[in-house]
Write a protein that binds this DNA or RNA. Structure first.
Length: 458
RNA sequence: GAGGGCGUAGCUCAGUUGGUUAGAGCGUUAGUUUGUGGCACUAAAGGUCGGGGGUUCGAGACCCCUCGUUCUCCCCA
């Protein structure tokens, strides 16, 4: 018999990991709620139409398609065979697949907004914490099934939304004990750069290239731009842009000079200045996370049009652990135009890795069973069972050992499961109505009346 | 889509230039110990060496194919 396995890029999570992950989820969820965001959940699968063409050509390939049922129906063989030929030649056809697994949370959200636009109170603020699936090649920090935690606001152009979202980032990472830098930029500035360097139509190529600056260095960025057909003059302008340095005020004024009177650029600069003026204000004692401009920040090219965010952990080698930005007209794809929005996302799987490396998970997170009742005979365990139910009624997690056996095994079980207390109720205790409560951590024990047990402080 | 690494006990891995009956640690089970755990000691169970083909007197090891997995690039979270 062959051993079972997992589909590539998926994982099982054991108790300890689930508890830590839940801690992250809870933290994010509670902050989302604190800022007035409402939960939304959407199905794991969507109609293929809803997803196709929204993530670019590359993205379409990475969508997990679901095979239609009933293809083995003899009446449909001719049609099915024909349709399958199309699939073999690279065309997706409804005859073979008309549903697919969710690729992200943003497009399903846009679909939801478009379907329920009439009933929504605008601005509509929703958060969503669910897994998504991608048929990507897995590698470090990259899976085929992973969670996204998104918060979006639609129906408002106000920059206050960006301010709120930046505060959410700062608050969540403060609570998690992860020091981060929140980098901001504006797609308007990138658009302006493309315009003044005379390559407005090359904006995508330009952003892709400069986004890699810290990864591959200036020379290679220039080489890539050159390969994309930009002239030396154009590359020169871009190099000036990339070499802007100093504090935020200095950077903004240098940028102003470079972009000149470009209208889009001006808007972008004003928006950045607005946000910088509204630095995150989170409770005292905090790390004082600040927004920092980073003009090389580009982010996934698709729908972003205004301010963009990216969060990186300080002191750990890891890609971005959060990102987001403003988009105009996302629901236009679904027939409801002119609904502007802005959103952020948390990368839980990476946040987990970062927190593990920094060792910042609180110990309480691991709390499981508190008390193990020893099983020392039929009458004894029956009595223990009654006491256990009383403790459970008080909200204390308890277990009764599953069979009567020697102390040795029962102790070892408690040890391995990290259960801090055992309660010994044997024949002796049974006759005089007592029980022994032993703290395994301190190696101390005391004898109590059984009636006192519910008042005991575990 | 392109290119590397690795598949040996439940887990982590040794296994010499190809050589008899493939090993260790951890884990599991039992015992030393019939009401006080972690430690120690003893013993046992546990393998189609990922699969198929080839070279050879002889293959866990070498060659080819294949499957799985992992990492890098592309792209992304």
């Amino acid at each position: 018999m062959s051993k079972p396995g997992l589909p590539q890029g998926t994982r099982d999570f054991s108790a300890a990991v689930v508890r830590k992950r839940n801690y992250i989820f809870q933290t994010i969820r509670s902050v989302f709620e604190l800022y007035g965001f409402q939960p939304l959940e959407t199905p794991a699968m969507e109609n293929l139409d809803t997803l196709m063409g929204k993530y670019g050509e590359e993205g379409d390939k990475l969508i997990f398609k679901i095979l239609n049922n009933g293809l083995d129906n003899p009446d449909k063989h001719t049609q099915a065979t024909e349709d399958f030929e199309k699939v073999l030649s690279g065309k997706i056809t409804k005859g073979i697949t008309e549903r697919a697994l969710r690729y992200d949370l943003t497009i399903p959200f846009a679909r939801y907004v478009a379907m329920n636009y009439g009933q929504l109170t605008l601005p509509f603020k929703r958060y969503q914490i669910q897994p998504v699936w991608r048929a990507d090649r897995p590698q470090k920090g990259r899976y085929r099934e992973f969670y996204q935690c998104d918060a979006d606001v639609v129906g408002s152009k106000s920059l206050l939304n960006e301010v709120e979202l930046a505060n959410i980032y700062a608050t969540v990472f403060e609570k998690l004990g992860v020091h981060v830098e929140i980098k901001i930029n504006s797609r308007k500035i990138l658009a302006a750069l493309a315009e003044i360097s005379g390559g407005a139509d090359k904006m995508v190529d330009i952003t892709v290239a400069i986004d890699k600056l810290d990864k591959i260095g200036l020379e290679k960025v220039k080489a890539e731009l050159s390969a994309k057909g930009l002239t030396d003059d154009q590359i020169n302008t871009i190099e000036k842009y990339l070499s802007i340095e100093g504090n935020d005020t200095e950077k903004l004024s240098a940028l102003q000079t470079l972009l000149g009177n470009n209208a889009t650029g001006k808007e972008g600069i004003e928006e950045i200045a607005y946000l910088l003026n509204y630095q995150p204000q989170i409770p005292p004692g905090s790390a004082g996370t600040k927004l920092q401009t980073d003009f090389t920040l580009a982010r996934g090219l698709n729908y972003y049009t205004g301010i963009i965010f990216e969060v990186k952990a300080i002191g750990v080698q890891m890609g971005s652990i959060g990102g987001g930005g403003r988009y105009d007209d996302l629901t236009g794809l679904f027939g409801v135009p002119n609904v502007p929005g802005v959103g952020i996302s948390f990368g839980v799987d990476r946040i987990y890795d970062v927190m593990e490396e920094l060792k910042v998970f609180p110990e309480e997170v691991q709390a499981g069973t508190q008390v193990l009742f020893f099983n020392l005979g039929e009458a004894e365990s029956k009595q223990a069972f009654g006491l256990m139910q009383q403790l459970r009624g008080k909200g204390i997690a308890c277990e009764l050992f599953h069979e009567t056996t020697k102390f040795d095994k029962q102790f070892k079980y408690a040890d391995k499961k990290g259960i801090p207390y055992v309660i010994i109720l044997g024949s002796e205790e049974l006759t005089n109505g007592t029980c022994v409560v032993k703290n395994l951590v301190k190696s101390e024990q005391q004898t109590l009346q059984q009636t006192e047990l519910t008042g005991f402080k575990f």
